[in-house]
């Protein structure tokens, strides 16, 4: 196991790690945005209590729905005023709790954004419902962005994994080649293929694990550095989302990378010894 091969594995894994960090952060941001996704189901002023109960129960029973909260017209007015700040008093001076221009509503939170349109369609069809709204474009953009980043990161991940396997394959092949004579003798004496394979697989896995550990250390410094800069300059991300905390990211990367290193090492070394076992 040479320093050069460890470093080659490290460089491939660092790039994988950067991609992985981006994916963790995109998912982290999306999770937060998803948590804020809601449909506002506005009720008719003359909706009966029976209709209101039916709408509430029916929406809550939907498997895509996380929670349903009632917001009275008075609360809605207060919330709206609060969101606009000081000027709202002037704007809404003619409105009091009794004649709020905003109807009563149910705020429906969803588990995932995928079926938001179905829930919306179901809600607007119900008796006693005046209208329902949700950020249709935001959801669509969010979904397509998630898909896009996932596809791109999987492609890069696959290519770099192949490169890492190839580096390990070549390194172990050199070791196997230098012990070709020994392997032949072992085969003649009656060693099983697994008996011969295991030391090389261990060596390959160690190469993968060393590479993974060193790259985790590099990624850790890199992420703290980038996180510091971004936290300093970015005051807000869309919809109040934040970046994933460095400790959470490093823990995830550490666990995945050690396993990933072992896997890459095992695959790489298994391929490299295959040819030499046919004696």
């Amino acid at each position: 196991m040479s320093i050069a091969s460890v470093l080659s594995v490290v460089s491939a894994l660092v790039i994988v790690g950067v991609i992985f960090t981006i994916v963790i952060n995109v998912n982290h941001i999306i999770d937060q945005i998803e948590g804020n996704l809601e449909i506002k189901v506005y009720l008719l002023d003359d909706a009966t209590q029976l209709q209101r109960d039916y709408i509430y129960n029916n929406l809550l029973a939907d498997e895509n729905v996380e929670s349903v909260t009632y917001e009275s017209r008075q609360q809605a007015l207060e919330n709206f005023k609060a969101s606009l700040g000081e000027d709202s008093e002037y704007l809404f001076s003619g409105y009091t709790d009794g004649n709020s221009p905003i109807p009563d509503s149910y705020i429906v939170k969803l588990k995932t954004p995928e079926n938001i349109h179905d829930v919306y369609l179901k809600a607007v069809e119900m008796d006693g419902v005046r209208d329902a709204v949700y950020g249709e474009q935001t959801v669509e953009k969010l979904l397509s962005f998630t898909k896009f980043t996932n596809i791109i990161s999987w492609v890069i991940f696959a290519i770099l994994s192949l490169i890492a396997v190839f580096i390990i394959f070549n390194t172990i092949k050199l070791t196997v080649f230098s012990r070709k004579n020994e392997i032949t003798i072992m085969k003649y004496v009656g060693a099983t293929n697994w008996y011969i394979r295991i030391p090389f697989i261990i060596e390959g896995s160690l190469l993968g694990v060393f590479g993974a550990l060193i790259s985790v250390l590099i990624l850790r410094s890199l992420y703290y550095f980038v996180y510091g800069i971004l936290i300093g300059s970015l005051t807000t991300l869309p919809l109040g989302a934040t970046l994933a905390s460095p400790s959470a990211v490093i823990t995830q990367i550490f666990v995945y990378f050690v396993l990933y290193g072992i896997l890459l090492g095992t695959i790489g070394s298994s391929f490299s010894i295959k040819k030499f076992l046919h004696v």
Partner: peptide, 16 residues
């Protein structure tokens, strides 16, 4: 095969 080969000894010209 390994178990079959355990019943056979081999000697080569180049000792190995």
């Amino acid at each position: 095969l390994p178990y079959y080969r355990r019943k056979i000894g081999v000697v080569f010209q180049d000792f190995r």
